[in-house]
Amino acid sequence: MDCKEIYELIKLIDSSQLAYFELKDKDFYVKMDKSYHRENVERVEKEHKAYVTENNSKPCDVKLEEALDLNQKASDSEQGNFECIVSPMVGTFYITPGPDKEPFVSIGDKVKKGKVICIIEAMKLMNEIESEVDGEIIEILVQNGNMVEYGEPLFKIRK
């Protein structure tokens, strides 16, 4: 593959709903990963570098996973009283019941406990995920069509 073909492949994958792509050939190998976790890792690293620069301090020896937890806790206290709805399984996240359909929920929507808020497809089965609390959707943490892992946060809901 030449540079132009690689660039076109990157644009195609970036505009798709694929979270992960891997291609192997005789003398060529490319891997692209757009997963939620990787985005958070990059964001935390960037914020940490900016903090160190602004405050003329030394970089800390906190492991990246711990930094993500600390960052999430700080964000939680700023947002107020809310709960995260997490994925109960590994699969593909869908915010709509089907193509060309309206989303189950949007940011700002009020939801009641038991309302279907998304679908996770696992092993060709569509699993409806219900809200665990009454409240307001303040953030949707996963893009439609992305893969999710067990325990991965999907929504923030203000109680």
Rank of each mutant, 00 (worst) to 15 (best):
Y51R: 13
V52D: 05
T53E: 15
E54F: 13
E54V: 12
E54Y: 13
N55E: 07
N56E: 11
S57Q: 15
K58L: 14
P59R: 02
C60V: 13
D61P: 08
V62L: 14
V62H: 10
L64T: 09
L64I: 12
L64E: 08
L64F: 05
E65L: 11
E65H: 11
E65R: 09
A67I: 07
L68G: 04
L68F: 04
D69W: 13
L70T: 11
L70S: 12
L70Y: 12
N71E: 15
K73N: 12
A74G: 14
A74Q: 13
A74E: 14
A74I: 13
S75E: 15
S75R: 15
S75A: 13
D76K: 09
S77A: 13
S77T: 15
S77I: 15
S77Q: 15
Q79P: 11
Q79E: 15
Q79T: 14
Q79D: 14
Q79C: 14
N81D: 15
N81P: 10
F82Y: 12
E83W: 12
E83F: 14
E83R: 15
C84L: 15
C84V: 14
C84G: 11
C84K: 15
I85F: 04
V86E: 10
V86L: 09
P88T: 04
P88C: 03
V90G: 08
G91Q: 01
G91L: 02
F93N: 01
F93Q: 02
F93A: 02
Y94M: 01
Y94C: 01
Y94H: 07
I95Y: 04
T96A: 10
P97K: 00
G98H: 03
G98N: 01
P99L: 10
D100M: 04
D100P: 00
K101V: 07
P103M: 02
P103N: 03
F104E: 01
V105R: 01
V105Y: 02
I107D: 08
I107E: 13
I107S: 08
G108M: 07
G108E: 06
D109Y: 03
K110G: 09
K110V: 11
K110E: 14
K110I: 11
V111E: 00
V111L: 02
V111R: 01
V111S: 04
V111K: 00
K112M: 09
K113Y: 05
K113C: 09
G114F: 06
G114I: 06
G114H: 06
G114V: 06
K115F: 11
K115G: 11
K115Y: 10
V116D: 08
C118F: 02
E121M: 06
K124M: 07
L125G: 08
N127Q: 02
I129M: 08
E130V: 12
E130N: 10
S131T: 03
E132W: 08
E132Y: 09
E132A: 12
V133P: 01
D134W: 04
D134Q: 07
E136P: 04
E136R: 07
I137H: 02
I137G: 00
I137K: 00
V142A: 05
Q143G: 12
Q143I: 10
N144Q: 06
N144I: 01
N144W: 03
N146D: 13
M147N: 13
M147H: 14
